[in-house]
Simulated assay, not measured.
Amino acid sequence: MSSTGNGSKLCVLGVAGVLAGTVLVGCGDGGDTKQEAGASSAKTSAGAEEQGTRAVRSAYDRTAEEDTAKVELRVRTSAQGRSETANGQGVVDLEDGDSVMTLTAQGQRIEQRVIDQVLYQKMPEGQAPGGKPWIRIDLGKVAGRQGAGDQGVSDPAQSAAYAKAITDQDVTEKGTAMVNGARTTHYRVGVDVAELPNGDALRKQVGPALPMDVWLDDEGRLRRQQIDMTVKAAPQSAGRSSGAASSAPEKVTVRTVMDFTDFGAEIEAEKPPAGQVTDMTGKALKQGKRQS
């Protein structure tokens, strides 16, 4: 793989992590069958369900009230029997979504900043296009054009709106667990993808629902979020495949885990100097259009 292609892959992993981490609510678990089963048993556990629903609905507001937090990110991407893992650490502004992170994937390190819904990444030496160390992608434009439900990026108010759409049938308490030294309650949450902004387009990519799990501490704050999704990606072209090219879309599974610790941590997110940045928004839009 060329250095340019490798850098693009790392960039995609980084973007995936950012989007999964900042779109806090709006991913579901189970389809219509599970929701029907939940409805039939709701009468016997209505009190517990209502309590869990209230806890999940309020968790994102309570977490955002802490202003900032340290974040640890793990993204595992699997396709065609192969998998890759990206890890990240940094600090995020829980109110406006700005963040400063360091990502590591395939043994390479990327410095990443998100400022006002714009992603900046400092690529490994020799991999940045245009001879400049930083690339720039306007996440707001990419999400708006692709209609992939990512408009909640850097917008906790949008995330809270998703949470308010959860009903008692959408939340299941799974038990308790220690997460980074904090005692938490584990909930599995289900929100119909159709309820999200641009839900029809997102449904074509990931199906009617996404599995999401959250772990809330004793103060009702989010300590861990896990999202599992299967995305339909564009098939490989015949020129890149040794055998006959398949017209069927490739399925890529992505598990994203984000841990929140050290609420109130300091953050300094500054834009790189303009002369050191290459804008890659157009290329990202073209890639998204090919995969849609």
Rank of each mutant, 00 (worst) to 15 (best):
63 T>I: 04
68 T>M: 05
110 I>V: 14
83 S>P: 00
156 P>E: 15
128 A>M: 05
77 T>M: 07
118 V>R: 10
117 Q>W: 10
119 L>W: 14
98 D>P: 12
150 D>E: 13
119 L>E: 03
151 Q>F: 01
142 V>S: 03
153 V>I: 14
62 R>I: 13
40 S>R: 10
34 K>I: 06
112 Q>Y: 07
112 Q>M: 11
56 V>F: 02
81 G>E: 02
39 A>L: 12
159 S>P: 03
50 E>T: 08
48 A>P: 00
159 S>G: 15
76 R>S: 09
125 E>S: 02
70 K>Q: 13
103 L>S: 04
89 Q>T: 07
111 E>M: 03
140 G>D: 13
125 E>A: 04
56 V>N: 03
108 Q>D: 03
150 D>W: 15
138 D>Q: 03
129 P>L: 00
64 A>P: 12
132 K>G: 02
73 L>G: 08
106 Q>D: 07
65 E>I: 11
79 A>W: 08
122 K>G: 02
71 V>E: 13
42 A>K: 11
148 A>V: 08
64 A>R: 15
75 V>M: 11
87 N>A: 02
65 E>P: 04
61 D>R: 12
45 S>L: 15
50 E>M: 12
159 S>D: 13
44 T>L: 13
78 S>T: 10
40 S>V: 06
144 G>E: 15
148 A>E: 10
99 S>N: 15
119 L>T: 01
127 Q>M: 15
131 G>R: 00
